[in-house]
Design a protein around this nucleic acid. Sequence first.
DNA 1: CTCAATTTGTTCGTATGTATG
DNA 2: ACATACATACGAACAAATTGA
Lengths: 256, 256
Amino acid sequence: MIKLKETYRRSNIPLYLQVASTLKRRIETGYWKFGEKISTIEELEVEFQVARVTIRQAFDQLRKEGLVRIQQGRGTFVAKQNVNKRWLRLEISLDSFLDSIVDNIPNFLEVVSPPRVPRLDADDGEAADDYIYLKSVQTKDDEPYGVVSVHLARSVYDLAPEEFGSHTALPVLSNLDCIEIGRAHQTLGIGSADMETAHLLDLPLNAPTAEVHCVVNDTQNTAIYVAEIIYRGDCIKFDIEFLQYMSTKNQISNKG
Amino acid sequence: MIKLKETYRRSNIPLYLQVASTLKRRIETGYWKFGEKISTIEELEVEFQVARVTIRQAFDQLRKEGLVRIQQGRGTFVAKQNVNKRWLRLEISLDSFLDSIVDNIPNFLEVVSPPRVPRLDADDGEAADDYIYLKSVQTKDDEPYGVVSVHLARSVYDLAPEEFGSHTALPVLSNLDCIEIGRAHQTLGIGSADMETAHLLDLPLNAPTAEVHCVVNDTQNTAIYVAEIIYRGDCIKFDIEFLQYMSTKNQISNKG
DNA sequence: CTCAATTTGTTCGTATGTATG
DNA sequence: ACATACATACGAACAAATTGA
């Protein structure tokens, strides 16, 4: 067994929550299936090297979340069927990406002191003279799934202020005939929810998130749209099809 | 300001760590730049609605991580230049993906009772008759970045057992001329480190991770390679270039 | 140089939460 | 359930360092 105490020191999170998290994962990954009996407290006590009461506290946590059913004298049982989550698929091509977000409803937030300029990385082109800052929570079926902070060049915003004020910016932008786009790219990384994000996305603090930095440049390489998007980690899925290369490569190999 | 206490109740994580997490993010996102003075303890006290000592505890946490420098009578200052982490870039094409992992060193782990069959989703083809199970920690510059659990069809493993026993399986597989590959695909999701993963990847419990499910099928649609890979979230980056479509679309628009 | 304002450092008492045996 | 130990959090008061008038 792993030295739990070490890991504990590294994270400072209450021990019973760490145990709960591990048990939760076992249930979610199907290590214990629906209706099945979980190891006894005594077994877990030995496995995790913690006190009996700590295991009970962890169980209590899971019971509150409706994951287990505890029965005195019998044991603890998995009480929740593993539900299939509805994934938000990240698309590789812009048209499918736009398709997937065009109908989404942004709930705009008031921002007291927005950053005047967007974050621009080495590869992101030049800053525009002036930006409008828009911040919104994106929802689907009344569930929040993303926080979007957009810096939109003032000159672009002025072309359709009412559109940008009521729809997701990117589809609006791509529909403006008078704007010529030189480049569009985005970078996805993995982060965790800070307090504000946790609050907006209805997540526990430090829950995993996907952080996307999306930049659209005009033909002069000016960054006219810069978005920082934070998605709930549990609704992001990315499919990558490798087939193409493999079959080609394999054909070459077979010839040799 | 956000109702902190509510979020607190949801997560049960020590308050000072939650505050630390928020401050950390502000620094990382450049809300406070390098060398700049952070809000005073008293300001933050009001903003977060917590006691002075709690803010100090949070600062202390950040100081330990080397993010800030505290000076009595003057204030607290950002002490860390925003360093560019060395990202492990996930590639869209298999050849670049193989390139990026071919030199990596797997440290194989002993597994007491490996799952006999791999997890196969609806789209993953048929299971092979028999599998070899390999589990390893991948490292780069002596730093662990991923845990790989591979189910490799026994018939494939037998073609080059010593190769598979000393190198990353996927490049070895792709170099076997006698194997014809019908399909290869992978799915990426976002998760968090359980106790074992946290231990192997030197992460705090519940740190964000990328979870990759990678399947290679032969021409009969048999899954000959099925890998479950867990990457450290902080070393994953995904670049997506949208340019192609945008310019095409725009040309069409301009014609209209 | 002194003084006041600002800002962090320290300490105390109290209450509650966490973890052990 | 109980006794014990330690961590977390609060508010308040006072000490020490820095700055600028």
